[in-house]
Design a protein around this nucleic acid. Structure first.
Lengths: 216, 216
DNA sequence: AGGCGGGGTTCTGTATACAGGAAAGCCTGA
DNA sequence: TCAGGCTTTCCTGTATACAGAACCCCGCCT
């Protein structure tokens, strides 16, 4: 694997998991030495992060990790709603029923697991990512996939703004089960409605759990 | 201005205007010498083009200009429809009425100009770009703007697939006037409907004017 | 005659050296 | 004491040199 790829993945993970919090200055020589590579591949990694919106080039000052604000999250959901609805509609029209039936069952099982207290948040988000990937694959539209990938990247970071509690996780599992079932049934409008409900609840939970505008 | 920016802009324009047709191999040394710069800034430009989807990295073989297919255009419109509708809805809700009234009048004038035979296709597309920019500004959503920018880039290239005739241009001017008027009136659903009509007609015209799948 | 292997060539990927510029800090003068 | 300008010191942006890898072509073996 190329050094620039490794640097990109490492920096991206560090930013997404808040090990590099918003506002952090990513100096070239410092990061290059930290990652054990030269400035050239590091610059390529940084430019990718800038293109992705995870960092911004402060002219003459280097690149800094971009901020995450509640207002930005509202903007994010304004775009996510039509995009995820479109993806769900396409997926419902072109799906493989068995795959989404299986996912619906796994969300039901995840709900039961959450209810019993055995909440594994990380594993749950992994399951959500699997549903997203299945919808992307069923939608079979590269432009849609790319746009979704961008938005989901920012979503991962925004999740840290909210404090997920078992109650919300349980509701989320139910909503995702509804989405998977609607897609499995091949009903585009039902799938879009299920996505609308889920995103509305997600945003509402986020807004409710963040008291003020935290720019960090 | 930075050399990498100039190289990026130059290559991007060359690809969008088919001076670098799909399938062209962009060898680093060749392009660097052609543009009169070193390989380092050229590589940055190429990586940006790859991120944008205008070029693809053929592993170990350099990057090549990506193909434009009719199937790809359909995919493009599948994403454009929900995104442009969302933008129109937001713009209608947050607009500056005067700006969109002025744009509506300019589209009416453009229609009259097209009818009289004085068709300046390039100027007309410039006016379309102005409306797009006004909608972006009114929508005031950076994520939406970024997603739109990506799609519109590919749209510019796809336009070459169709042979625009004065009849289609006249209809397009009328459809754009409808969009501008709907936004000016502050009616989100009307604006979304106008966008839906325009995109449906645009895609239909594209599909009708391209006989077979031309990958070029 | 066809397939396979080896050498050569050319490419990308990476490291490093150099130049230009911007920001911060300090010194001086009012 | 404060403001302004200068200097210093980084850091970015660019060029170039080097190494590894892939591909192609030619010759040889079957």
């Amino acid at each position: 694997m190329r050094a620039s790829d490794r640097a990109y993945g490492s920096l991206r993970a560090d930013i997404l998991e808040w090990r590099l919090p918003p506002g952090t200055l990513l100096a070239e020589v410092e990061q290059a030495s930290r990652l054990g590579i030269s400035r050239t591949p590091l610059r390529e990694a940084l430019s990718r992060l800038v293109a992705e919106g995870l960092a911004a080039a402060h002219s003459g000052r280097g690149v800094v990790v971009t901020a995450v604000s509640l207002a930005g999250v509202v903007d994010l959901f304004e775009v996510r709603l039509p995009l995820e609805c479109a993806a769900a509609r396409l997926a419902a029209a072109r799906r493989d029923p068995a795959a989404f039936d299986a996912l619906a069952e796994r969300f039901e099982a995840a709900g039961a697991l959450i209810s019993s207290g055995g909440t594994d948040q990380h594993a749950y988000y992994g399951l959500v990512a699997e549903l997203d990937a299945a919808i992307d694959e069923a939608a079979a539209n590269p432009y849609l996939v790319q746009a979704q990938r961008q938005l989901r990247t920012h979503l991962v970071r925004a999740r840290r703004l909210a404090r997920d509690n078992p109650g919300r996780l349980l509701a989320s599992a139910g909503e995702h089960r509804q989405i998977a079932e609607a897609v499995a049934r091949g009903n585009p409008e039902l799938a879009a409605a299920a996505v609308t409900i889920h995103l509305s609840n997600s945003l509402h939970h986020l807004q409710a759990s963040v008291p003020g505008p935290l720019d960090a």
